[in-house]
Design a protein around this nucleic acid. Structure first.
Length: 883
DNA sequence: CCCTGGTCCCAACTT
DNA sequence: GGGACCAGGG
């Protein structure tokens, strides 16, 4: 078989060991994806395995579609059937949509439907979860500064990831806070059940429960899937591990691929035990190690390996590469965040130009720890007129207008989804105010009904003033019309409404009391070319009537029927998602209201809505139902936005997992930023940060540049704060590093540091010769090599390289700025330690000052000790000395 | 009931 | 830099 010749012996072994469990420990860049795709191809082509009996699970949707493509290339045309390649979450949704009702139990009340989730369940995203938790906390009177909904949710999620029940949390609780959380957790589960909703964690847990407790379902999948592959195995959590075991069946044909040094999701429950216990649960498991790196130069690989070697909790491995030497790791120290970003843009600009001349395809990435860092890099890229692509941040489906319309869809799919219902009940405003909503909420609570049930109850029992009642009725009509469209009974519904109350037709009922009519002002047939085939790009279709004014404008019942028939000429025709969306947009007058707003933002929202309709139309073209469209909307992830054809990508380190770039700028190498401040007190968390650093560094193929801002503005405060170089910088062997210009003044302050900063790699003569490079320099003859380039910034900002100049710069911008005193300017006392300074403590040894609060004798200083972590000390009492 | 503007508090990573 | 919340006027 020809393609096997392209593999090294270890890779080949991983591919050819098809029977029984295999654990592939695959170092960074060792051809992991290749092994998985070749393995699938091998199973199909060589072993004659039916494609549809192979299940491969990846971490992101992007990764799975990419893998599917690569497999298709290898074995395409062999069979129409395809292997199932999916994320754990997507796979679980499929399983649950098919069989979740097998988990229902009979009601204790005779005649009542069984209890449990039904197939049309909705998926709650994080903001939906927040709404639920907030409501519960308000109700329980647990609003508390110490206990934020966010906080509670992360505890709930963590409990779920460890497969703990509310009772477990309650029994384990040693403090009142945890006890409260247990109660909220309990209520939260009830709420979700009532809403027929699942959160992300539930998708895994319920699928697991289904496979575990319903033998028929488990056997179905065990028969169906003979071969199982799990990618990014180091980042699976316990429920995923259990799912894997359940799916492995008796055949145990499981292949797990992972790298413990790249485990970066422990906060999401990823459990290193999954790697260790693989051998315990599958004693016959074969272990294959892939240690040849095909991606990076030796310098990059060595630097990354040396950093991660500082971790205690690891198995250890020896990665090697045939790409000897390579450019040194660049290190740039910018005076501030703006300059750091300009530097990155300049470096990438040079590279892109150079690559263009050589006829190569340039691909570069800026990687950072937190999404908020992207802003500065985006601005810098724009200044250089570079096209870039940002992964992450605010996603399409998080935009208010998109969430509104998606919530309508969710409410139509499942009206018991109270979060979605609440979101749209008065959006756009239709006169259902706070008082009314509170009344409905109370009613729901008293009766045990969902919000939707309570709406119906309030209308039937006429529990509200006429005005509010009318508004509520019109809302109910809207949702029920939507449901009827989906069910294909819309025409019958309108005809029936007209027949039942001839004097007081459907139109009047629907529009009563809202000040705006929700039925067409004119027959739809006056809009030619836009009848049943909704054109997503054309919103002139005037179904809505936000501008209905006088009685005379109100259509007759006949007209309403006409309109309905016009839309669905054939009674019984069900609306697809796109049509439903368009119906909603028109009936609510959503776009019309945005047009009236007439601002740049409102038009961009309209654009977004068009895009949503387009997405719905694409979904229809793929033959998907509303369920599937909503599942997709719920499960797209940030990392899925990655575009492999983009020349320049900005993204977080987490999102960069699994990717590679010829040039990588790893920015923000500062204590408190990377490693992140929230991790600094926990040695395990620091190790995870270090793994993240390893992941980032090993993304680079040819050139890796690390950067840091000496002063960084945090939270938009007036005064930038001095930063302390990231400990990871000090862990990079200095001989592999070449400094790239930067701030001289800042370096003197860091004197005393070890590693890169203390012993800057001696400048080679080559680099000295290239110091004349500047941004305007048109010298095309020089080969681009950032590790040898000393940038000279072209922008005014960049000229401020010394502390004095920074002060001047901020003064010129009218900002207050007090240049911190340099240690050298301090009196020779042991008082007045400043951030960045090295100090010595009698008990904790040497450390670096991280932060200083207060003045004089009362000053508290926070010191980072390598072995003891972060300590807050009162300067007066702590016997600190300059180290 | 709705909208506005001011204020306060917050600020990891993400399926 | 921004979201959530509240008071107060329309």
């Amino acid at each position: 078989m020809s393609f096997l010749d392209e593999l090294n012996p270890q890779q080949r072994e991983a591919v050819e060991t098809t029977d029984g469990p295999v654990l592939i420990l695959a170092g960074a860049g060792s051809g992991k994806t290749r092994v998985i795709t070749f393995r699938i191809a091998y199973l199909i082509e060589k072993m004659g395995v039916m494609p549809e009996s192979i299940l491969a699970v990846t971490f992101t949707n992007k990764a799975s579609s990419e893998m599917a493509e690569r497999v298709e290339k290898l074995v395409g045309g062999l069979s129409v059937a395809k292997p199932v390649i999916s994320t754990f979450h997507s796979f679980c949704v499929r399983v649950l949509r098919r069989d979740v009702e097998a988990l229902r139990i009979p009601s204790t009340v005779p005649g009542q439907p069984p209890i449990g989730l039904t197939k049309n369940f909705v998926i709650y995203d994080e903001s939906d979860q927040q709404q639920v938790v907030k409501g519960i906390m308000r109700r329980m009177g647990l609003e508390d500064k110490q206990l934020t909904p966010r906080n509670v949710l992360s505890r709930i999620s963590s409990a779920k990831n460890h497969m703990l029940e509310p009772q477990d949390i309650y029994l384990q609780s040693a403090d009142p806070k945890t006890e409260k959380i247990a109660h909220i957790f309990e209520e939260y589960r009830k709420e979700l059940r009532k809403a027929n909703a699942m959160d992300f964690d539930d998708l895994l847990l319920e699928a697991m429960r289904l496979l575990k407790s319903v033998a028929a379902v488990r056997e179905y999948y065990n028969r169906r899937f003979q071969y199982l592959l799990v990618d990014e195995y180091q980042d699976t959590n316990r429920p995923q591990y259990e799912l894997m075991r359940l799916l492995a069946g008796a055949g145990h044909n499981v292949c797990a691929v992972g790298d413990e040094d790249q485990s970066i999701y422990s906060w999401r429950g990823a459990d290193i035990r999954n790697i260790l216990e693989f051998e315990r649960d599958f004693p016959e498991a074969k272990i294959v190690r892939l240690e040849q790196n095909y991606r990076s130069t030796q310098n990059i690989l060595e630097a990354a390996s040396t950093v991660v070697a500082n971790n205690v909790r690891r198995k250890g491995k020896n990665l090697w590469t045939a790409r000897q030497g390579g450019a040194k790791i660049g290190y740039y120290e910018a005076p501030d965040g703006e300059n750091e970003a300009l530097f990155a843009a300049d470096t990438i600009n040079r590279y892109v130009r150079q690559a263009g001349e050589n006829g190569e395809t340039a691909r570069a990435a800026v990687l950072y720890r937190t999404n908020s860092q992207s802003r500065l890099f985006e601005e810098a890229m724009r200044r250089y007129q570079l096209k870039y692509h940002v992964v992450g941040g605010f996603s399409f489906y998080e935009r208010a207008e998109i969430k509104d319309l998606v919530s309508y869809l969710k409410a139509i799919q499942n009206p018991d989804d109270s979060v979605s219902l609440l979101r749209v009940i008065n959006t756009p405003v239709r006169g259902i105010g706070k008082t009314t909503i509170e009344m409905i909420e109370r009613l729901a609570l008293e009766t045990g009904l969902s919000m939707w049930g309570a709406v119906g109850e309030a209308i039937t029992r006429q529990l509200l003033p006429a005005r509010a009642l009318a508004a509520l009725k019109s809302f109910r009509e809207l949702i029920e019309d939507g449901r009827a469209m989906l069910a294909g009974t819309f025409v019958e519904r309108v005809v029936e409404a007209a027949g039942v109350a001839p004097g007081e037709g459907a139109a009047e009922q629907r529009s009563a009391g809202t000040g705006q009519s929700f039925v067409p002002t004119q027959p739809v047939s006056t809009q030619p070319g836009d009848e049943t085939d909704f054109d997503p790009g054309n919103f002139s279709f005037d179904f809505g009537a936000a501008d209905a004014t006088g009685e005379d404008d109100r259509p007759s019942t006949d007209e309403a029927v006409d309109a309905a028939v016009e839309v669905f000429r054939a009674p019984g025709a069900a609306a697809n998602t796109g049509e439903l969306l368009k119906f909603l947009i028109d009936r609510t007058g959503y776009i019309k209201l945005l047009e009236e707003e007439d601002t740049p933002e409102s038009y961009s929202r309209i654009e977004n809505l068009r895009e949503l309709v387009n997405a719905a139309m694409d979904s229809r073209d793929r033959g998907e139902t509303l369920d599937q469209f909503l599942d997709h909307a719920a499960l797209v992830s940030d990392a899925d936005q990655y575009d492999e054809h983009a020349q320049i990508t900005l993204m977080t380190l987490h999102a960069a997992k699994g990717l590679e770039f010829p040039l990588v700028v790893l920015a923000g190498m500062e204590e408190g930023l990377f490693p992140h401040s929230r991790t600094m007190l926990d040695p395990d968390a620091i190790e995870e940060e270090r793994r993240l650093c390893y992941v980032g560094m090993t993304r680079a193929m040819d050139t890796l540049v690390l950067s840091r801002a000496v002063y960084r503005r945090r939270y938009g405060t007036d005064m930038p704060e001095a930063s302390v170089p990231s400990r990871f910088l000090e862990e990079v062997p200095p001989r592999l590093v070449e400094e790239m210009g930067g701030s001289r003044a800042s370096r003197s302050r860091d004197r005393g540091a070890t590693g890169v900063l203390a012993r800057p790699a001696p400048r080679s003569s080559a680099s000295a010769e290239t110091t004349h490079y500047s941004y305007e320099d048109e010298d095309q003859s020089a080969t681009w090599n950032p590790a040898r380039v000393k940038p000279k910034m072209a922008t005014p900002l960049a000229n401020y390289n010394s502390i004095d100049n920074i002060a001047e710069f901020f003064a010129s911008r009218g900002k207050k700025f007090n240049a911190p005193k340099m240690p050298s300017e301090e009196p020779k006392s042991r008082r007045g330690f400043r951030p960045g300074q090295k100090v010595k403590h009698p008990k904790y040894g040497e450390g670096t000052v991280y932060q200083r609060e207060g003045d004089g004798e009362d000053a508290k200083i926070t010191v980072q000790f390598p072995r003891f972590g972060l300590k807050k000390l009162v300067e007066r009492y702590a016997q600190l000395e300059k180290a």
